[in-house]
Design a protein around this nucleic acid. Structure first.
Lengths: 225, 225
DNA sequence: TATTCTTTGTTACCAATTTCACTTGACATT
DNA sequence: AATGTCAAGTGAAATTGGTAACAAAGAATA
């Protein structure tokens, strides 16, 4: 029995929907561990602090996975979302910059758990080049372009100082990489066909700070009757 | 001369607006370094890949900071946003969990640069308790509640395993903390009056993965004529 | 000082997203 | 088999967020 392929997506799916898919995926993984067979949009919504309608809408963009009157089959829905998000395979990831953040990310289990395998490390520091981090030898950043190509890297995680981030990302783009996750607090320019996401860890603290200072109204709590 | 206080905010300001304020703040800091006196919404928009209209609208929620025909005074606008975001002061932050991520965050300069001073560390590992990280002695997590109170901590950064995160956050809430930044991939429950933000580092990789697999349309590039 | 030019602040409009409410289908029970 | 219940799926309504256009304010210029 093969899992039916999700219909190819015509509409542009919103970023928020994709992020929520990640949430559903995590919730479903947990539900599976807890031996649930099925789950309703209501329960899923409750667990992720959303509304049942939103859960159903989000999922309906990709197909009809549920059974009316019963709910969604946990195991199957998880597999579906896994396939939609591309988590049913592994990704070859290179990490550039073995500083504080970089080192932490090498050891960050969540990444490999989701199939993001860091298989390559780069730094410009002679003391770090050649050293071993979790079984990976740190490469010289001067060989970035060729090594990214040779090792068939598909994604790059950038954890370098903001001041040099643009130069490095230019190299990364030249190597044909189409997906970059940037931790440097910098606004990087990439061509249209390269996906760039920024992880700005200060931003959320700044949001908290704003919320406290301005006594900002919390998101209304939805009752799931 | 005193900086005029931003009018108290009636409307709920959207999360996106706040995040963009962070971007403006960063851009303005840079512009100040580059000795710009003023900046137009057009230039600011270009630097952050937004539209001039959006920049003006965002800022107009908080007051009229610009001069028609001239633009915004860089130094002053930066100070204004700083005050809006609560970055014109320092925050006493405790970091819980001195693992990979936790250790990296202690040394993460961006935080202190924005006034988020990590002044307290907690862990449950006997080998770590009492040790010194960047001048801070790691405390025993068993004393969490009292020490958070005694040291007048205002924000907590949580970098503990997902499995124990809820227990710890319950303690944190009991200590009267109203702002929490959570790095654990878990859905934490907190009372309505506690601000909780989640930093989910896998999510952005998952978005990239989705984008590649589905050849997802990029956000249209806006021309700033 | 008058005129032109630039750029803000704001309102009106449009698009995207979320919520609502209803319809439909599956299962369970009698 | 008929009936009742539950929950998914869905189109329409409401809300929210973003864009565009323009009037007003000030700066630059002559």
């Amino acid at each position: 029995m093969s899992i039916p392929v999700s219909p190819s997506i015509r509409k542009r799916i919103s970023e928020s929907t994709i992020h929520r898919l990640s949430l559903y995926y995590r919730a479903l993984s947990l539900l599976e561990k807890e031996n649930y067979e099925t789950v309703s949009s209501k329960e899923l919504a409750k667990r992720e602090k959303l509304t049942p309608a939103q859960v159903r809408k989000d999922l309906s963009f990709f197909g009809s996975f549920g059974t009316r009157g019963l709910g969604y089959p946990v195991k199957e829905l998880r597999a579906q979302i896994s396939s939609i998000l591309g988590l049913d395979r592994t990704w070859r990831v290179a990490l550039i910059g073995i500083g504080n953040i970089g080192s932490a990310l090498v050891s960050y289990k969540e990444f490999s758990k989701q199939g993001f395998q860091i298989v390559k490390l780069f730094d410009n520091d002679q003391r770090k080049i050649g050293s071993n981090h979790k079984g990976i030898i740190v490469s010289d950043i001067r060989n970035l372009e060729t090594e990214l190509r040779n090792d068939r890297i598909e994604m790059v995680v950038l954890a370098v100082p903001a001041t040099v981030a643009q130069y490095i990302v230019d190299d990364v783009v030249r190597a044909g990489i189409k997906a970059i996750l940037n931790f440097a607090p910098a606004n990087l320019k990439v061509p249209d066909d390269v996906y760039l996401r920024n992880e700005n860890m200060s931003m959320e603290l700044e949001y908290l700070s704003f919320a406290i200072v301005n006594n900002h109204a919390q998101k209304r709590v939805k009752l799931n009757i």
